[in-house]
């Protein structure tokens, strides 16, 4: 594996900290993707099935 993904995955996680709260960037990305999927599932129209 090469490139930015390799340098991102092959190093210890980077953490964001706000006081008592801390989260790794990896976990934050996963949670943001899940929230985006949830929003998309509600907002995007389902294709029409059999009529």
């Amino acid at each position: 594996m090469t490139g930015w993904l390799a340098s991102f995955l092959n190093h210890p996680a980077t953490y964001l900290k706000w006081g008592w709260f801390q989260i790794s960037i990896s976990n934050l990305i996963v949670i943001l993707i899940m929230l985006a999927l949830f929003a998309a599932a509600i907002l995007i129209k389902f294709p029409k099935g059999r009529e």
């Binding site: 949830f38 998309a40 599932a41 509600i42 995007i44 389902f46 029409k48 099935g49």
Partner: peptide, 8 residues
């Protein structure tokens, strides 16, 4: 049921 939220 024709909604993406029912797919998960």
């Amino acid at each position: 049921v024709a909604s993406w939220i029912y797919v998960f």
